[in-house]
Design a protein around this nucleic acid. Structure first.
Length: 827
RNA sequence: GCCCCCAUAGCCCAAUGGCAGAGGCAGGCGACUUAAAAUCGCUCCAGUGUGGGUUCGAGUCCCACUGGGGGCACCA
């Protein structure tokens, strides 16, 4: 570490060691100081999972978050920039199983390692605001929130078919199943009927969707689109169909009530209770066929179900529904293309105008009735359903109307007769939060034979996880906590009789749904977070993290915020005002991984090039949301630039505190133009451009020092000090070293990044361009207040322009004084 | 199948509708050096994926296409 890495530059390793303890003592980024009058800004990086030491991805994310955080600090804000660890979860548990250790030890060791690395990486975190979700002092409040949700009816238990990962041996939320695979281990997810805990996120579906509009422009469009897709609101109607031989009608959900006359059969989800009930009233032959079919359906997994070109299958129940408008008898089929848990689990099939229904009708020879004349080819002949707007036909009282009118009229009639109503549905399902694993927050419920499920009183929290010692943590489909008999067996909080604790633990996404509030008062033992501090600091002004969390974490955090808003704990309903998604760090075009053999170790990069060069490379590589291919960037080039900037500091010979006013005007203008551009670039996340501007200014300084201006000119000092201030966002060590060389006390990070002096931005002359027919012909140096007439005169006296227009008729002249004159000719 | 984003030099990337190049990487030449590295200076390199359109003027706005990336997808 003492080796001189860059021979004619600074010794990065030595500089790093030198400044860390000094920074610690200065406490530059403490945000909780009494009487701090600076305006507040809450900048938050998504907290890491402590799965080992920091890697290149962390290095990018935290470098970019730090640019923003340090920028606002330089701009005079009291910036709160906390950090913590998302410390519960399966990797710790799996590592513990493999090594025969307690997940605690593994987790806390990794946290300590990451903390050390973050400090060395010069992250501007407020180390007084730290949390770990596996600390009882933290997860106690998960339990408290669960009980708050429970009281509101937002946490409930139900038996349903849930996603099951056979490898992780636990249930998964819908959001954790990606294309039918477990998002964590890529196993094929199966379905299992289990009684599980859910959060009623669907109750907030409308608000979660509608409030996305308020984030427009402040969140990446991609994330907004993903959330909208995920929530997936559709509007239509619920329609009651009378059933022969059944007292109750069956309600179906449709987005096309206008096509009601075109319904030629009904389909019920094969795996629904309704299907079983209907078939129970059918012939024995049908019942046998149905059982066989249901067996097949239950065997198929999501991968098979999701295949869109799969042939349609189903069973005719032999029973009939009555079309509420036409009075026609419709055969009722069961099939697996209708989902039991969407809408009502039953549909009216309109084969002429729905491709899935048409495929089904053609497979089983069911009738097809066209009810909308769309001008498209006949679906009966083409096998392609028509979905466009058109004139209603074969539709009784709806005939002649267009789609919108028919929808409104159909709903009106049905509502009047009490046989239907407007309705909407969501793709979003309730959030399944219970997990059959050890390393998570115990669910604060006791099951009592007499009293049923009994919430643990809040004053008995936290329910601490029992020690892992003696427990078999290996996945086996039921929670390992069940074996901790001393822990499980407790008196019922309500009646005192022997009862058992709920043995499931919470999804770790519960932990991260509100951690941004915990930072406000991370050590409080009396409340989850300080509402008073929340009023001062929250919501988060700037959130920074990977797009991998575009749906899960961000949706859940938004949900929690809305609930907390309703409960009166916070006065806002969106947690993250602005969001920046950084890209990934790739190597040779693909994600780094050991198995691909393209892993770049962060620690190696830091040893070779220094912290500053790596941070600078991350910021300079391109727009922050783009992926960085490490093969395309040059940390050595970054180091070279830093050395260049550092040398410039050594070449400043004027005294610290010198009045800049007497300095070289041209360089002063460059410095202030830099300030104007740089500040705007950073605020618009154009970090790569901001870095380029610093390079530009350093080049200008170099020229000035080596040229006639000289290192003693006050403008050189002004420019180099500005470079140090700006560079502190990207390369804090180099900037601090420059600051010291320039004769200042330590603390360049708060030295300030002023607004540009408007007086120095005023140009006395500009270069005007002279065009003929839009093509550049000549340029003129003119005063900034040059008039149209002056530009015309210059054009008239320009040989080049006169030659270009010679013999042509002038159609018109466009003048944008003082910068442009364009002579347009005819023809 | 539906929706969204992107395309500028060998490479990474800049450019309020007004001179295509800010910055960097790689390459070439030179200075310094016994030599090399480092450093410093100079320099080569595209007319903006394709085809239309709007405009006095288009990398920028509109339409279509091609190529790449992403999201959703049997959700009635």
């Amino acid at each position: 570490m003492t080796q001189q890495i860059e021979p004619s530059g600074p010794n990065f390793a030595a500089i790093q060691e030198k400044w860390l303890p000094i920074w610690d003592s200065l406490r530059l980024f403490a945000s909780g100081n009494e009487g701090d009058k600076r305006p507040k800004k809450y900048v938050l990086d998504m907290f890491p999972y402590p799965s080992g030491d920091l890697h290149m991805g962390h290095a990018e994310a935290y470098a970019l978050g730090d640019v923003i955080s340090r920028y606002w600090a330089q701009r005079g804000f009291n910036v709160m920039h906390p950090i913590g660890w998302d410390a519960f979860g399966l990797p710790a548990e799996n590592a513990a199983i493999k090594r025969g250790l307690d997940p605690r030890g593994w987790t806390y060791e990794n946290i300590e390692q990451q903390r050390t690395s973050m400090r060395r990486y010069a992250c501007s975190f407020d180390w007084d605001r730290v949390l770990r979700t596996c600390d009882p002092i933290y997860y106690r409040w998960n339990q408290w929130l669960f009980l708050e949700f429970y009281k509101k009816g937002l946490a409930y238990r139900k038996n349903s078919m849930v996603n099951w990962c056979p490898s992780c041996q636990t249930v998964l939320a819908n959001e954790q199943v990606v294309g039918g695979l477990c998002e964590r281990c890529d196993s094929v997810v199966t379905k299992k009927a289990l009684t599980q805990w859910f959060f009623k996120v669907t109750e907030y579906a409308d608000r979660l969707l509608d409030d996305l509009d308020t984030l427009e422009g402040n969140w990446p469009a991609q994330v907004l689109s993903m959330q909208r897709n995920w929530i997936g609101r559709s509007t239509g109607a619920e329609v009651d169909f009378a059933i022969e031989g059944r007292e109750e009608p069956i309600t179906v959900y449709t987005t096309r009530p206008d096509t009601l006359y075109g319904a030629t059969f009904m389909v019920v989800a094969a795996d629904s209770d309704l299907a079983a009930e209907l078939v129970a009233g059918s012939d024995a032959a049908v019942r046998i066929e149905f059982q066989a079919y249901l067996g097949e359906v239950k065997k198929s997994n999501d991968i098979e179900r999701l295949a869109t070109d799969r042939p349609k299958t189903g069973v005719n129940t032999g029973r009939f529904a009555i079309n509420p408008l036409s009075g026609e008898r419709l055969p009722i089929w069961v099939a697996d293309y209708v989902l039991a848990d969407y809408g009502t689990g039953a549909i009216m099939a309109v084969p002429a105008h729905d491709q899935r229904d048409l495929d089904f009708a053609r497979t089983f020879g069911l009738p097809v009735t066209v009810v909308v004349e769309t001008g498209e080819a006949d679906p009966i002949e083409t096998g392609v359903a028509t979905v466009g707007d058109g004139v209603l036909v074969n539709s009784g009282i709806l005939n002649g109307l267009n789609k919108q009118e028919a929808i409104a009229k159909a709903i009106g009639i049905l509502a009047e007769e009490g046989r239907g109503k407007a309705a909407k549905n969501f793709r979003l399902r309730d959030w399944l939060i219970s997990r059959q694993r050890y390393w998570g927050t115990p669910i604060p419920i006791v099951h009592c034979d007499a009293c049923g499920e009994v919430p643990v009183p809040a004053d008995q929290l936290p329910i601490e996880l029992p020690s892992a010692e003696g427990l078999d943590l290996s996945p086996k489909g039921t929670s390992p906590l069940g074996a901790a008999t001393d822990w499980v067996n407790v008196p019922c909080p309500s009646c005192g009789a022997p009862a058992k604790r709920d043995t499931d633990t919470m999804d770790t996404f519960v932990d991260s749904s509100w951690y941004f509030l915990r930072y406000l008062s991370p050590n409080s033992t009396t409340e989850a977070f300080s509402s008073e501090a929340a009023r001062e600091w929250a919501p988060v002004d700037q959130y920074v993290g990977g797009v991998t969390h575009a749906i899960l974490h961000l949706l859940y955090a938004r949900f929690f915020t809305k609930v907390l808003n309703d409960l009166g704990y916070v006065d806002f309903s969106e947690p993250f005002t602005k969001l920046l998604n950084q890209g990934m760090v790739l190597m040779n075009g693909s994600a780094m991984s050991k198995s691909r053999g393209n892993l770049v170790r962060l620690s190696d990069q830091l040893d070779e090039h220094g912290v500053d060069a790596i941070r600078l490379t991350m910021a300079f590589a391109g727009p922050p949301e783009d992926d960085i291919d490490w093969a395309d960037v040059s940390p050595a080039g970054s180091a070279k630039f830093l050395a260049r900037a550092w040398r410039a500091a050594g070449d400043v010979t004027s005294a610290v505190g010198v009045d800049f006013a007497g300095g070289n005007l041209e360089l002063r203008r460059a410095t202030h133009a830099f300030l104007r551009d740089f500040n705007a670039n950073i605020e618009n996340f154009k970090f790569n451009v901001g870095v380029a501007k610093i390079m530009e200014l350093v080049n200008a300084v170099r020229k000035a020092i080596d040229g006639s201006v000289g290192g003693g000119d006050a403008a050189v000092r002004e420019a180099v000090e500005t470079v140090a201030n700006a560079l502190s966002l990207f390369a804090p060590y180099t900037a601090e070293e420059m600051w010291a060389i320039l004769g200042h006390e330590p603390g360049v990070a708060l030295a300030g990044l002023p607004d540009a002096d408007p007086a120095l931005l005023v140009q006395s002359t500009v270069t005007a361009i002279g065009q003929v027919d839009g093509k550049l012909r000549d340029t003129f140096e003119v005063s900034v207040d040059a008039t149209e007439a002056e530009l015309q005169a210059l054009a008239d006296s320009s040989d080049v322009i006169q030659r270009a227009i010679a013999g042509r008729e002038i159609a018109k002249v466009i003048v944008r004084a003082p910068k442009l004159i364009n002579i347009v000719t005819k023809g």
